[in-house]
Design a binder for these strands. Structure first.
Length: 574
RNA sequence: CGGGAUGUGGCGCAGUUGGUAGCGCACCUCGCUUGGGACGAGGGGGCCGCUGGUUCGAGUCCAGUCAUCCCGACCA
């Protein structure tokens, strides 16, 4: 590709609304351009990188028996109602105003609807289906460039099996393929166990790239053996010691005390573990005949309630109570709520394992400006249940006490799920087994965000001068920079070299632009991050020499012009 | 959805008590320069987000509205 004919609008100004390195550099290097919030046009250089990522994905998907599909973005509301997900997704799903259609945020329903008429026998199974296609999600707050957009490209794959062992095998195949894909994309990544959220299913794993631009928090053990999304991470923690003092509980006047910190300050204590923090949650009624259920969750004052864990135990639609509801349910506002004296006596009370059978606890009195001390959960809170409800913290030990945890930010680049039969059951996609019995097809689903791979690669591979592409997804292997296009001899040499390299199928970008000073070309080459720069200018050429610069290390190699082809081959194949 | 902020040439920004809309970069022409985003001279380009109001007069004041960004909530 000749740069004189290649549309790459580089800019030296930093976009005023960009903060993440990948966002700034992908705009400055001319990969993407914002159209409207969360929606990006992919420019020619971006298309080249995207195509390279997609090529890798296709190769790895095909290698595990994948069949490539291309499904529509539009799909009928009816289909989404059959699985109940039109409601489950809520505002995240884009709805078409003048037809009963949605812009699909994912494709379990459509793939299953195709499997339904064709997959009727165990003899048709297993199947591995995938596509690379545009997804639409009405994100409340897009951010960080293409890292969270309202429209993005996803590789989504779906496995169909007749047995649970088959699902395990399909899942393993995808897991392996994902590792190959991310490795070939030049990413340093790891996988973490994760919550399957509204997707449903039994098990899921996320593939993560550690980055400050990430939105997920992950807990990692120092020995590298444990990695988990903070939403499901567990750690070893001592329970709050029971003192068996059998002190009678009594009310404390705590004027204007709202937070645990204020309470600790007011009482003059530093150990917050005996201050039981209360959070009220609502489990919305599933039908009109039922009533909403209420839940009071208690954790130690120095802990936070992990809402994902809570949802796992009590259902996916659980939500924090609104301020008016708190008053209605408990009799007090947030800050004065506790397990004793609740206004509504149908509130289920659940506490974190750390508080199991603890006594001498202090918690809200369900009366504004009052707390109660010497609460004994065993004695005073009959029917209390215990669960793991807390968010793990940096510095805690793993459950087996073998290693310490640290907490880091990460970008989710892929997610694999063992779905089970959720979709096949609701859409009646069944097959007959050997014994002629009808069974729902057992499914898995597997997603990769294409733009997130590109952004993550930039996050991990850049410096103050720009992007530093590595491995297979570099848009070009090398850039040939003609510093003096007005010098006919040099230009002729460059043209010949360019033609030869192109003929040899080496991805080469030729900076043949006229009327640009050398510094400008060097800056552009660094910014768009081509790994190898071949610099041809009068200074070296008059000595029959050519300079090669390695983008990553900054290393410069001066080489005889007759040896250039060999050196390029060596560098490009390295 | 709650809180905060910002909308002025392609990009980054200034614009005072209301009085002819400016600067840097980019762009065009000429000259000069050519190994790390040169320099000089000249030039083109603006429903000042939109709607309404106050005023002799609004980029500036008021009201509404839309958009964008940040924090939070939410998030297969």
């Amino acid at each position: 590709m000749k740069l004189s004919k290649f549309f790459v609008p580089t800019q030296k100004e930093v976009p005023s609304d960009a903060f993440a390195a990948s966002h700034i550099l992908s705009i400055r290097a001319g990969l993407f351009r914002l159209l409207t919030s969360g929606v990006y046009s992919v420019l020619p250089l971006g298309v080249i990188v995207k195509n390279k990522v997609e090529k890798i994905i296709r190769e790895e998907m095909n290698a595990i028996g994948g069949n490539e599909f291309l499904l529509p973005a539009l799909s009928p509301n009816e289909l989404w109602n059959e699985t109940g997900r039109l409601d489950d997704f809520g505002d995240i799903i884009f709805r078409i105003k003048n037809r009963e259609l949605v812009l699909a945020p994912t494709h379990e329903e459509v793939f299953t609807s195709i499997a339904k008429p064709y997959i009727n026998s165990y003899k048709n199974l297993p199947q591995m289906w995938y596509q690379i296609q545009t997804k639409f999600r009405n994100e409340a707050r897009p951010k960080s460039g293409v890292l969270r957009g309202r429209q993005f490209t996803m590789k989504d794959a779906y496995s169909f099996d007749s047995t649970w062992e088959g699902l395990d095998a399909s899942y393993e195949l995808q897991d392996k393929a994902y590792r190959n894909i991310f490795k070939r994309c030049g990413l340093k990544f790891f996988s973490v166990s994760a919550s399957s959220g509204a997707m449903g299913g039994t098990r899921s794993e996320e593939f993560m790239v550690e980055s400050d631009a990430g939105e997920d928090l992950i807990a990692l053990s120092e020995d590298g053996k444990y990695a988990s999304n903070i939403e499901v991470a567990e750690s070893f923690v001592e329970t709050v010691a029971r003192k068996n003092s059998n002190l009678k509980y009594e009310e404390l006047h705590t004027p204007a005390i709202k937070s645990i910190d204020e309470l600790a300050g007011f009482l003059g204590i530093t150990d917050k573990s005996h201050l039981a923090k209360s959070r009220v949650f609502v489990i919305p009624a599933k039908s009109e005949n039922e009533k909403d259920k209420y839940l009071l969750a208690l954790v130690c004052g120095d802990d936070e309630v992990n809402e994902t864990k809570l949802m796992k135990y009590y259902g996916a639609n659980i939500r924090p109570g609104h301020p008016e509801e708190l008053l209605e349910i408990t009799g007090a506002d947030a800050g004065s709520i506790g397990p004793i004296g609740l206004k509504n006596n149908n509130v289920e009370i659940v506490a974190d394992f750390r508080l199991q059978d603890a006594d001498e606890l202090i918690s809200g009195a369900n009366k504004n400006d009052y707390h109660i001390k010497n609460i004994d959960f065993k004695r005073d809170v009959p029917g209390i249940k215990y669960n793991d409800l807390r968010v793990v913290k940096e510095g805690e030990y793993t459950k087996d006490k073998s290693s310490k945890l640290r907490v880091a930010k990460a970008i989710e680049i892929g997610h694999i799920f063992k779905l089970g039969t959720k979709y096949s059951e609701s859409l009646h996609a069944t097959f007959l087994d050997k014994d002629g019995r009808e069974n729902p097809i057992i499914m898995g689903s597997y997603g990769i965000g294409i733009e997130r791979i590109i952004a993550s690669h930039i996050e991990q591979n850049h410096d103050g001068n720009g992007i530093i592409w590595e491995g297979e997804i570099a848009p070009f292997k090398l850039i040939l920079i003609n510093i003096t296009p007005q010098n006919e001899e040099i230009t002729k040499f460059c043209e010949t070299l360019y033609d030869e390299l192109s003929a040899a199928n080496i991805d080469v970008l030729y900076d043949d632009r006229e009327d640009l000073r050398p510094g400008f070309k060097f800056k552009d080459a660094d910014l768009i991050g081509i790994p190898v720069h071949v610099i041809v200018g009068e200074k070296n050429f008059k000595n029959n020499q050519i300079e090669i610069k390695i983008r990553k290390s900054g290393e410069r190699i001066i080489i005889d012009k007759n040896d250039i082809r060999g050196k390029i081959n060596e560098l490009v194949n390295a």
